[in-house]
Computed example of a mutant assay.
Amino acid sequence: MTTAEFDTFTSTHVIHADPGVYAPQDDSWLLCEMAAQSGVVQGARVLDMCTGSGAVALAAVTLGAREVFAFDISPLAVACARRNAAALDAEVDVRQGSFADAAALEPFDVVLCNPPYVPSEAVPVGEGPHRAWDGGRDGRVVLDPLCEAAYDLLAPGGTLMVVQSEYSDPERTEQMLRSAGLTVTVAARRSISFGPVMTERAAWLHDVGVLDESRDIEDLVVVRADRR
């Protein structure tokens, strides 16, 4: 898929997000864009973890994936992703489950993930839209388990791409993935203005020493890891 074709996808495919389900935003589209530019999705068996509305999984279908699975722990997200796939007549196997549930399947050629990564005062519990972004005090309540599961999720020659904020320690993601035996690079880094969640949380992030008081932008980082 060329950049122009990707722009056509994002402008013409309407992805609905039900109440309580994460609507695709800059991080979703950056992950899709990097997957498109990498060329690894064509003909691949793809896993979209933390699928939310299913936007990344649907992009994988458009990119020519051979088979697409999408997982989320939220039943609301699973129902929403299934409806979006049906509306676009896209073959996506959407399931409720965790990294362990996904790892119980055959390994994947490509794993894509836009996890919750915004630092939060408390570990997220219960249902609700906050589960799509709250990542615990260091933003890594989902990122760390992903890094631990990554090697087993990937088939030999497979590729993981995960998007996160600079405020959830992408260097730790790189270190954990390398320690797992994967080859790691930073595929993209892009600055965006704070959205509503980061704007609301900025004072607390400053108080705990994560954020400079005058800063109102964040870098989104896409980390790529390859299993050889």
Rank of each mutant, 00 (worst) to 15 (best):
46 V>C: 05
46 V>M: 07
47 L>V: 15
51 T>Y: 05
51 T>P: 00
52 G>W: 07
53 S>W: 12
53 S>G: 11
56 V>S: 13
57 A>M: 14
57 A>R: 03
57 A>Q: 06
59 A>T: 12
59 A>S: 13
61 V>Y: 07
61 V>F: 02
62 T>V: 00
64 G>Q: 01
65 A>E: 09
66 R>T: 05
66 R>G: 15
67 E>L: 07
67 E>V: 08
67 E>R: 14
67 E>G: 05
67 E>I: 11
69 F>T: 15
69 F>S: 08
73 I>C: 06
74 S>N: 00
75 P>K: 04
75 P>E: 10
77 A>M: 08
78 V>M: 09
80 C>A: 15
81 A>S: 06
83 R>S: 15
84 N>D: 13
85 A>T: 14
85 A>M: 10
89 D>P: 02
89 D>M: 08
92 V>S: 10
93 D>W: 07
93 D>K: 14
93 D>Q: 15
93 D>E: 15
95 R>N: 09
97 G>F: 11
97 G>I: 02
97 G>N: 08
98 S>A: 02
98 S>I: 06
99 F>D: 03
100 A>Q: 13
102 A>V: 13
103 A>R: 15
103 A>I: 04
105 L>R: 12
106 E>V: 14
107 P>F: 13
109 D>P: 10
109 D>K: 12
110 V>R: 08
110 V>Q: 03
110 V>D: 08
111 V>C: 13
111 V>H: 10
111 V>I: 13
113 C>G: 10
113 C>D: 07
114 N>D: 10
114 N>W: 09
114 N>F: 08
115 P>S: 07
115 P>Q: 12
117 Y>V: 05
117 Y>E: 09
117 Y>P: 01
119 P>D: 07
121 E>G: 11
122 A>Q: 12
122 A>E: 11
124 P>W: 04
125 V>I: 04
126 G>P: 01
128 G>C: 03
128 G>Q: 00
129 P>N: 05
129 P>F: 09
130 H>T: 00
131 R>Y: 00
131 R>T: 03
131 R>K: 08
132 A>P: 08
132 A>Y: 03
132 A>C: 05
135 G>T: 01
137 R>K: 10
138 D>G: 03
139 G>A: 04
139 G>E: 04
140 R>F: 10
140 R>N: 07
142 V>E: 14
143 L>K: 10
143 L>G: 01
143 L>I: 15
144 D>Q: 01
145 P>V: 04
145 P>W: 01
147 C>Q: 11
150 A>T: 08
150 A>C: 09
151 Y>G: 06
151 Y>F: 11
152 D>T: 12
152 D>E: 13
152 D>M: 00
153 L>S: 09
155 A>Q: 06
155 A>P: 02
157 G>C: 09
158 G>I: 07
158 G>T: 06
159 T>S: 12
159 T>R: 12
163 V>K: 01
164 Q>E: 02
164 Q>M: 05
165 S>P: 00
165 S>L: 04
165 S>W: 01
166 E>M: 10
167 Y>V: 12
169 D>A: 09
170 P>V: 02
170 P>R: 01
170 P>S: 00
171 E>N: 11
171 E>D: 15
173 T>N: 02
174 E>P: 00
174 E>R: 13
177 L>K: 03
177 L>E: 02
178 R>K: 09
